[in-house]
Simulated assay, not measured.
Amino acid sequence: MSDSRVVLLTLLALLAFAGNSLLCRIALAHTNIDAASFTAIRLVSGAVVLWALVMLRNRNRRDGAKAKEHGNWLSALALFVYAAGFSFAYIQLNTGIGALILFGAVQTSMIAFGLWRGERFTPAQSLGLLLACSGLIGLLLPGLSAPPLTGTLIMLAAGVAWGVYSLRGKGAGDPLQVTAGNFGRTVPMALLLSVLLLNQVSLDSAGMFYALLSGAVTSGMGYAIWYSALPLLKATTAATVQLSVPLLAALAGVLLLQEPLTLRLVLASLAILGGIALVLLQPKSSDFH
């Protein structure tokens, strides 16, 4: 595969990941769809697209090989907690702030797990982790521009859940088929959540359209594109380029939704993303979607 095609696939994947935040925020803030229904439609449509891609890929394999790993229920539960928390948090949070909190929580939880497992950081990595944590704390301190506490806590939980999902997925086999299997397992969980919150169900065509886009395009197809590019990227490159996702989401929120670009958000972004970059630029990698 040519270098230009790798760059294009990587850019499309990063835009898709940022698009998830934008689509969710548009749907929850500007249409009448409820968070549980958005989550269910996103996960169901994502599962359908991913499985269609898996079947198409397997049918076209010349060697006839079929991946045997189809995910598992614990990973699916982590995926569901992420997706549900992501939706409910975006009822209150702006696009950029939500993406930054999510990204910070994902990477911080994965870094913390590495430390707990006995990994040793260089002085630069330790400084980076301290800087990232300081940025998160600064973002969440009380003040006029502070994000709502409830939405923040829910998004932090979603980020930790995605960190768990990413850690469980390391070395789990064919990533596309594993992701498809995990998405499929989240469907009954999402439907159960919708039943439990049946009295809050609210649907409209625009909200359903955004949920379908989020599931089928920016989730299902986005993950497929990312997994096509990932084997061709260096580990440090793959980890570092993901730093652009919260920035892309924030820029989209400012340009398309007229969301404010506050000094607090700018400074917190520099601290969190700069700190995480210091950690990730060492020969190790971590995943964010």
Rank of each mutant, 00 (worst) to 15 (best):
V201M: 15
E69F: 02
Y223R: 04
F17I: 06
L167T: 11
S87R: 03
L79H: 07
L281F: 08
G222S: 09
V49M: 08
L43F: 10
A157K: 05
L130N: 06
F121H: 15
A83C: 05
F113S: 11
A180G: 06
M208A: 15
L9H: 09
N182I: 01
Q107N: 12
A13N: 03
A105Y: 03
G171K: 02
A36H: 14
G181E: 14
F38P: 05
L14A: 01
A18N: 03
V106T: 15
L191N: 05
P175I: 03
L193D: 00
S145M: 10
L43S: 04
C24N: 14
A105W: 04
L53D: 06
L15C: 14
W226E: 01
L193Q: 05
L198T: 11
A180M: 04
R117L: 09
A249T: 10
L153D: 01
Y90C: 04
T39A: 14
V241H: 09
Q200E: 15
D287K: 12
L270I: 15
Y165V: 00
Q125F: 09
R59V: 01
G220W: 06
A172W: 01
L196H: 05
G143N: 12
L12Y: 07
R62Q: 10
L127E: 12
G207V: 10
L255S: 05
K284Y: 00
Q242I: 11
G85Y: 12
T31P: 07
L267V: 14
Y90T: 06
P175M: 02
T186R: 02
P231L: 08
L156F: 11
L267D: 07
L270R: 00
L140S: 09
G118N: 07
Q258W: 06
V201N: 11
L22H: 02
S126F: 09
Y82Q: 07
G19W: 07
F88A: 10
C24Y: 00
L273S: 01
K170S: 06
A229Q: 10
A132W: 13
K170H: 09
N94S: 10
L144A: 14
L203R: 03
L12K: 10
L156Y: 05
S286E: 12
I91Q: 13
